[in-house]
Amino acid sequence: MKKKYLVIIYSIAIFIFFVLYLSLGKNKIYSTQDNIGKKIPEVQLNYFDKDGHFDTKEISNSKFTLLNFWASWCGPCRKEHKYLMELSVSSNLIIIGINFKDEKKNAMKFLSEMGNPFSVLTTDFDGKKSINFGIYGIPETILINEDLKIIKKYVGPIDDKDVRQIKKIINK
């Protein structure tokens, strides 16, 4: 009887310690990966460089689309910009820029200095529209397939590896 209790208690303890051990090595950075596989929400975004607005319903369903949330005040955005430029030449990909809580003057200066990779340039001046895409800090980048479903989500600046991954997906 005593032995049985001992075995039960030991097994529970071993299980708990094992899980705690596994949890030590876990990556603690949160990302909204749950959104992958969902259809993108219907949102109207104001054009940044002209009047009127862009509706996400207009997103092409013959090509892949990359939504990039950026701002001139964001340091990491500068770092990832050259990769966006690199991707902008791909024929099978449209890049939509969503400028996040930024001043038009600074944003335009940023683009004239670093180049403009965006086929469509829109703005989210108060950051509320971005909530619909599950954005909580920039830069964030979302890759959408022909069915308008989200297939990849990158939190933080994209890098060499991400560019290769994106190219592989769109050139399939």
Partner: peptide, 13 residues
């Protein structure tokens, strides 16, 4: 934080 202020606005709306 900036994020919190945005969410506050959205919830308000």
């Amino acid at each position: 934080s900036d994020f919190a202020l945005t969410i506050k606005d959205v919830v308000d709306e």
